[in-house]
Amino acid sequence: MERTADGGRVVDVARRLRRADTGGWGETALRAAVTGLGWEWRDGDAGPRLVTGLVPDGSGAGAARLRPVGRFERDYARGGQEYVGLYVPVALPDGGAAAKAAAFRAAAEALTEEFGPASVMGVYGDPGPFYDSAPFWGSPFLRWRGRDDTLELHPGQHGPELLLQPTDPVEDWFWRQGHGEAHAVGGFFGSRRDPANAGLGFPGRWRTGDWDVFAVALGDFLHTLPAETSALGIKLDFGLHALVPGTHGPVLFHLACGERLEIAYDTEPLGPGVTDPATFGWIPAASRPAALDHWIDVPYHSGDFGIGETDGARLAGMMVATLRDLGVASPKDLSLSDHAQQVGDYHVSYYGLTLEENP
């Protein structure tokens, strides 16, 4: 049985979702909208399940669903909204993270061809909207923002989903994560210069002076990054400055991640006498050259990792151990290179990295 909708069917459903009259997201209006879409509404303990026939399967994972306003959503719902999302699976790929990222990218390419580039893109990290846990394989998203309702290509646990949602609740949730507490928001968030983004707000970032807290955040950021960048069809390419005593804060590390992830470590600005990087797990380029392109010298690197191969905690541990050994006093003495926030046509904020960003 086919468990992936072809691009034409995905686009057709997306078009119909964008045209649907959600009528303020109350149940009466949504029942009428579901009927208009030709779907069957079935009530359930966790909220309505909608039989669409788009990706049928025996487990029920292919059913669409509505997200009711519950205890995690009620602070963000508006007026008479009883629901804050309609989720429609478009693929249930067998296999792990690589299959799910590939299915997401295929759907993304079809939707982009139809609607143009998404106005907003990024990675939710953990937590996601309304405090959801991130899927194991990654949490990339593409969002075509509307004034009242927004269409999103969304990361489901089983694969990509189309998500139609009222615009305000999810953006209000995101905005309110700017309270500065550790791990308030993760991942990264990118927006284009697009009239659709008028009035779009961004929360303040959280930062930490605790190496252990930073190591956890960095490890979480890295762990699923190849799946996420591959799914989005982007490449991240930036350096990390470190205020090593006796220096002016050189770029020590360079991260490159598209379909594979590799981190370079440049010891040249530090002069002689540093601890052998191999002590922390860095690989000498003399014995194994770097696999990816880097814009700094690469005497040492992390090795390269594909989807499902990255041990984020280990890589973060290597970087943090190296920085502490060099005498960097705090994660607050780290910052991103000055072009890090430009990813294609998107201006990106890296909430999961907690680092100062240099415009």
Score class of each variant (00 low, 15 high):
Arg19Glu: 12
Ala182Met: 06
Asn197Gln: 12
Gly138Cys: 04
Leu218His: 03
Leu200Glu: 03
Glu356Ala: 14
Gly8Phe: 06
Val34Gln: 08
Leu92Thr: 06
Arg145Gly: 01
Ser133Asn: 09
Ala316Met: 05
Asp210Met: 00
Gly199Cys: 03
Gly38Arg: 00
His301Arg: 12
Ala196Trp: 13
Thr247His: 15
Ser330Trp: 12
Asn358Gly: 03
Ala321Gly: 04
Asp276Ile: 00
Ser349Pro: 00
Ala313Ile: 02
Gly180Ile: 01
Ala110Asp: 13
Leu334Asp: 01
His339Tyr: 15
Asp43Asn: 09
Ser133Gln: 10
Gly24Phe: 09
Asp132Thr: 12
Gly201Glu: 15
Leu323Asn: 10
Pro127Val: 01
Asp333Cys: 03
Arg65Ala: 13
Leu30Glu: 00
Val88Tyr: 00
Ile283Tyr: 10
Ala91Lys: 02
Thr310Gly: 11
Pro331Glu: 01
Pro166Met: 15
Pro89Asp: 05
Trp211Ala: 08
Phe280Met: 05
Arg324Met: 09
Arg192His: 13
Asp338Gly: 10
Ala102Lys: 03
Ala33Cys: 08
Glu152His: 07
Tyr83Lys: 05
Gly317Trp: 04
Thr52Ala: 12
Phe202Gly: 14
Phe238Glu: 05
Phe130Ala: 13
Phe115Ser: 05
Arg67Gly: 00
Ala103Gln: 04
Gly344Lys: 05
Leu163Trp: 07
Gly239Met: 07
Trp282Phe: 07
Pro299Tyr: 15
Gly306Ile: 11
Gly308Leu: 12
Gly209Ile: 01
Gly308Trp: 15
Asp210Val: 07
Ala184Trp: 06
Asp126Gly: 02
Pro160Cys: 03
Leu292Met: 14
Gly281Ala: 07
Gly8Asn: 11
Arg143Pro: 00
Arg145Glu: 07
Tyr300Lys: 13
Val251Tyr: 12
Asp168Gly: 02
Val11Pro: 01
Tyr83Arg: 04
Val120Asp: 06
Gln177Arg: 15
Ile307His: 09
Val251Ala: 08
Ala291Gly: 05
Gly306Ser: 06
Trp25Cys: 02
Ala106Leu: 05
Trp25Met: 08
Phe253Gln: 06
Gly95Leu: 05
Ala77Met: 10
Arg314Ile: 12
Gly233Asp: 11
His241Lys: 14
Pro269Tyr: 12
Phe115Trp: 15
Gly138Asn: 04
Gln165Lys: 14
Asp6Arg: 07
Leu355Glu: 03
Leu252Lys: 14
Val170Ser: 14
Gly186Met: 09
Lys235His: 15
Ala313Phe: 04
Gly146Ser: 14
Glu114Met: 06
Ala321Ile: 04
Gly204Met: 05
Val213Ser: 06
Val55Arg: 02
Val274Cys: 06
Asp43Leu: 01
Asp266Met: 01
Arg143Trp: 07
Met318His: 08
Arg67Ile: 14
Asp194Asn: 09
Arg193Asn: 08
Ala256Phe: 15
Cys257Thr: 11
Ser133His: 11
